[in-house]
Design a binder for these strands. Structure first.
Lengths: 197, 197
DNA sequence: CGGATATTTGACGAATCTCAATAGGCGTGG
DNA sequence: CCACGCCTATTGAGATTCGTCAAATATCCG
């Protein structure tokens, strides 16, 4: 699936469940006037479309070229009955998403721009590690606009904040949209106001 | 359980699952320096402690005097095996929480103070309806501080915004922490920038 | 190499926060 | 039943962070 291609659309009937095989995906919700909130980024191994309601709660769009593994909802139902372990697995996935959502609420409601960007970088780094990838440098396949809409900021503020972090010697930015973590300790201190306040 | 009493604490082993029988509960996360994000309010019928991980992701505190129905985790496991329907029910609850969390991310990341407060009032009104209670007037059992920490604002901004909505003729405030919705249409227009922008 | 797009940087303004003071509500005790 | 005191909510004035608008620079790709 090509970059920019829509996988699912908010409000559509939730007919399928997907698993990301390759590439990355962004999830988002829109307001009528175009304001956008990116609610998450998905990477290989993540599930897409965990909606036990009738319709999807958000839209999903490919960032990089993406390969998805599709489970039609109907077959899923019977699969769940055959494989109770799968249901438990999905339940676990949902719980993880829920915990991530709560962290994100804390970020959006109470963190400063600097704390948000630092949190974002560290969070991507940790996710990369979980996928057995190096914790640094980490790729930022999404645009500044996507990051801004994820962090509740503007692209300008994201850009300025990255510059600050770079000037503070905490990170370095590669030309290939990669971020290298130079001072992991310092970055972690920033995340929840432990220092730098 | 008396108001202010802690039901579960962030990071504690997730030993129990609760159902709210009577009263209301707030869920929240804290930053080390005391900043707080309220991630949700629970009312009768809602589940508390849906954490399939080892530990709770947030703390929970009684707002009004609360009565909880407790399911020890161990018994729950066997219950789930006996009653697959319960597991499905929990899955549904988790999905609903997830959808609510995404709405809240949109609110925290992209809505103005006025839109946040209007959204909050309407959302409480809808929840009240689901519990077969009148859609107006609605009780606000939580303090202004709780509301502010839920909406990512300060108590002062919440207070000022309520005053604005009152002066605009959209709501009336009872002395008993109740809000009456005078102009439902107007309030709904505010929620996602449909008008008033 | 050149045009289009994305990112960075700059100057200014606005929404919200902070700090401070006032007013209102509620319980206790006279 | 009313007065006092405490706590919460409201209101006000000024500060600050972040957003807006605009321009410059970098990157991508044909």
């Amino acid at each position: 699936m090509a970059p920019g291609r829509l996988a699912i659309s908010e409000g559509d009937p939730a007919t399928d469940l997907f698993n990301v095989v390759r590439g990355s995906v962004k999830l988002y919700k829109l307001l009528p006037d175009g304001r956008r909130q990116v609610t998450g980024f998905l990477f290989p191994g993540d599930f897409l479309g965990i909606a036990f309601n009738d319709t999807y709660a958000y839209s999903a769009e490919a960032i990089e070229s993406v390969q998805l593994c599709r489970f039609p909802r109907g077959k899923l139902e019977s699969l769940l009955i055959e494989l109770p372990k799968l249901e438990r697995r999905l339940l676990g996935e949902a719980a993880n998403e829920l915990a991530a959502a709560q962290d994100q609420m804390l970020l959006l409601g109470r963190k400063t721009a600097q704390e948000r960007v630092a949190s974002f970088i560290v969070s991507l780094s940790r996710k990369a590690e979980k996928r057995k990838k190096p914790a640094s440098p980490i790729a930022l396949p999404m645009s500044r606009t996507d990051i801004a809409d994820y962090l509740g900021l503007t692209t300008e503020t994201v850009s300025r904040t990255l510059t600050q972090l770079r000037q503070a010697g905490l990170i370095a930015t590669n030309r290939r949209n990669q971020v290298e973590i130079l001072n992991s300790r310092g970055l972690n201190d920033l995340i929840d106001g432990g220092a730098g306040d």
